[in-house]
Amino acid sequence: MEGLIYWPHPETKPFHFQDSKVVEVLAVFNDKIKYGDEVTVHILNEEARFE
Rank of each mutant, 00 (worst) to 15 (best):
M1Y: 11
M1Q: 09
M1V: 14
M1D: 09
E2P: 05
E2A: 09
G3Q: 06
G3M: 10
G3F: 03
G3S: 07
L4E: 12
I5Q: 01
I5K: 00
I5W: 00
I5N: 00
Y6H: 14
Y6C: 06
W7L: 05
W7E: 00
W7N: 02
P8N: 12
P8I: 05
P8T: 08
P8M: 12
P8E: 13
H9W: 11
H9L: 11
H9A: 13
H9P: 02
H9C: 06
H9D: 15
P10V: 04
P10Y: 08
P10S: 11
P10A: 09
E11S: 13
E11H: 07
E11G: 06
T12R: 12
K13V: 10
K13T: 12
K13Y: 15
K13A: 09
P14C: 08
P14R: 13
P14H: 07
P14M: 12
F15S: 03
H16S: 13
H16W: 07
H16R: 08
H16F: 11
H16D: 10
H16T: 10
F17S: 08
F17V: 09
Q18D: 07
Q18R: 13
Q18H: 08
D19E: 14
D19I: 04
S20H: 12
S20L: 11
K21I: 02
K21R: 14
V22A: 02
V22K: 03
V23E: 01
V23A: 04
V23Q: 01
E24F: 03
E24H: 03
E24V: 03
V25M: 03
V25R: 00
V25N: 00
V25C: 01
L26N: 02
L26K: 05
A27D: 01
A27I: 03
A27T: 08
N30L: 10
N30I: 06
D31I: 05
D31R: 10
D31E: 15
K32V: 04
K32Y: 04
I33P: 00
K34R: 15
K34M: 10
K34W: 06
K34Q: 15
Y35E: 14
Y35F: 13
D37H: 14
D37G: 05
E38P: 00
V39F: 10
V39S: 07
V39W: 06
V39R: 07
T40S: 07
V41K: 02
V41S: 02
V41A: 09
V41E: 05
H42R: 11
H42F: 13
I43Y: 03
L44Y: 08
L44M: 14
L44P: 03
N45V: 07
N45Y: 07
N45T: 08
N45E: 14
E46R: 15
E46P: 00
E46M: 13
E47Q: 14
E47G: 11
A48S: 14
R49G: 07
R49L: 10
F50D: 04
E51V: 13
